[in-house]
Computed example of a mutant assay.
Amino acid sequence: MNRRRRKKLQRRLLEAAGWADAKRVAALLRAGADPNSPGPGGTRPLYRASVQNMPDNVRALRGGRSGSEPGKRLR
């Protein structure tokens, strides 16, 4: 996946984590969005979903083999 598409997916995932439903979040994860990558401001999708009180989105981000790793350090 090229850099431009990856950035677009990450931006959409970050937005969806806070305001969309879990189906949208799951679709973006299947499309290749990385739940561990921070957005432009350094915010991760898991943080956004938890701050916005979106428990279904938190579950979607944490679920599956590509789930988010909350304790993972950034480079």
Rank of each mutant, 00 (worst) to 15 (best):
R3W: 11
R4C: 01
R6G: 01
L9A: 04
L9N: 05
L9V: 07
Q10V: 05
R11C: 00
R12K: 14
R12F: 01
R12A: 15
R12L: 13
L13P: 00
L14E: 01
A16P: 02
G18A: 06
A20R: 06
A20Q: 08
A20I: 00
A20K: 02
A22E: 12
A22R: 07
R24W: 00
V25W: 03
A26D: 09
L28D: 01
L28R: 03
L29E: 01
L29Y: 07
R30W: 07
A31C: 02
A31Y: 02
G32R: 14
A33D: 03
A33W: 11
A33T: 05
A33R: 12
A33Q: 06
D34M: 05
P35S: 06
P35D: 07
P35T: 06
N36R: 09
S37D: 09
S37E: 15
P38G: 14
P38A: 15
P38C: 07
P38T: 10
G39P: 10
P40K: 15
P40W: 06
G41S: 13
G42L: 09
G42H: 08
G42A: 03
T43Y: 13
R44T: 04
P45K: 05
Y47S: 04
Y47P: 00
R48W: 05
R48Q: 14
A49P: 02
A49Q: 04
Q52P: 00
Q52R: 13
N53M: 06
N53C: 08
M54R: 15
M54I: 01
P55I: 07
D56E: 14
N57Y: 06
N57M: 04
V58W: 05
R59N: 03
R59M: 06
R59G: 01
R59V: 07
L61I: 10
R62G: 01
R62Q: 07
R62H: 02
G63N: 11
G64C: 09
G64A: 10
G64N: 12
R65V: 04
R65C: 00
R65M: 03
S66Q: 07
G67N: 07
G67E: 10
G67T: 07
S68Y: 06
S68M: 11
S68E: 08
S68L: 05
E69F: 08
E69H: 13
E69A: 09
P70H: 08
G71N: 15
G71L: 15
K72A: 12
K72W: 11
K72I: 04
L74W: 08
L74V: 04
R75T: 05
